[in-house]
């Protein structure tokens, strides 16, 4: 069953574009990555699904129900972590979490403490005293404490240190293993690749591509840089190699295809240094516009 069904969804803010004619489905139990640069319409899409804003055109269903008509009912099983977290400044963390929990028919106290312990969140501090990263942790606990069936994560890792990021990813994976569907929006390709099974790429308000993360990676360029003596532009004359540049005994090129062929080629020579990098998101988008 599709947890999210988006059909031809369009949102204009006055004349400014939000998103235009977006359609996609998210299946039950998957982690769906939603990537795109800033201003592409990621947050707009999530806010439409939460009915924080209303569509100009098209429709969206969550759990098979229309988001505009059945908003409150749908939101009972949704957890939302916004990209920018803001909470009532005067409240203590514990009171805020209790307030949040009070909206759901559950006794979330135990889970609240477990989650706070995992995320190393101090419950007795005031929201106004928290750093950005700590507010983000409040957001995470707040979004998860009622055991939602669907999670919206809007650029969730910003502000978290690497250690916390890892704990957070573990938490999301654990939730996912329990059958929770995750909608993960980000502009960092790496984290999407670590977590997601399927991704949608959005650019300038339109979906450019929806595919499995594997296919996306296979279809994508790797940036390869090899440093060795006696290299010539012809050293890596393979199918899939483009944009070859040589300087000071260093070869830079883009490669698309089976990475093993390049590795074999590299292992045949005595190299001083090798880096193989993910293309930046920008470069992926370039690819989609070629």
């Amino acid at each position: 069953m599709s947890i999210i069904e988006v059909t031809d969804l369009t949102k204009y803010y006055g004349k400014a574009r939000g998103i235009v004619g977006i359609s996609f489905n998210v299946e039950e139990g998957e982690i769906f990555g939603f990537i795109g640069p800033n201003g592409a319409g990621k947050s707009t899409t999530i806010r439409l699904l939460l009915s924080l804003i209303h569509p100009t055109n098209g429709s969206a269903k969550v759990f098979g129900k229309d988001v505009v008509a059945h908003g409150p009912e749908i939101r009972r099983d949704i957890g939302y972590l916004p990209s920018e977290v803001y909470y009532y400044e005067g409240m203590k963390v514990i009171d805020l979490l209790k307030y949040s929990a009070s909206f759901y028919n559950c006794d979330c106290t135990q889970r609240m403490h477990e989650l706070s312990e995992t995320m190393e969140l101090e419950l007795n501090r005031r929201v106004s005293d928290l750093s950005y990263g700590n507010k983000k942790k409040v957001g995470i606990v707040q979004g998860l404490l009622h055991s939602p069936k669907l999670l919206f994560l809007d650029e969730p890792t910003a502000g978290l240190d690497p250690l916390m990021q890892r704990k957070f990813f573990d938490l999301i994976r654990a939730e996912n293993a329990r059958g929770v569907t995750v909608f993960f929006s980000s502009h960092i390709l790496g984290e999407v690749q670590r977590l997601c099974t399927r991704v949608g790429i959005i650019r300038e308000g339109k979906i450019v591509e929806i595919s499995n993360i594997r296919t996306l990676q296979q279809n994508n360029y790797k940036k390869v840089r090899v440093t060795a003596e006696g290299l010539t532009p012809g050293s890596f004359d393979l199918p899939g190699v483009t944009n070859v540049q040589v300087e000071d005994g260093m070869v830079n090129f883009f490669f698309k295809g089976d990475i093993n062929t390049v590795l074999q080629k590299i292992s045949a020579i005595q190299v001083a240094d090798v880096t193989i990098e993910e293309p930046t998101l920008e470069e992926i988008f370039m690819h989609y516009y070629e």
Partner: peptide, 17 residues
């Protein structure tokens, strides 16, 4: 203006409520 509306309105309550 204090941006807490996202928190409140993503809860299972209707705007009228």
């Amino acid at each position: 203006s204090e941006l807490t509306a996202d928190f409140l309105l993503s809860k299972p309550v209707s705007r009228a409520q």
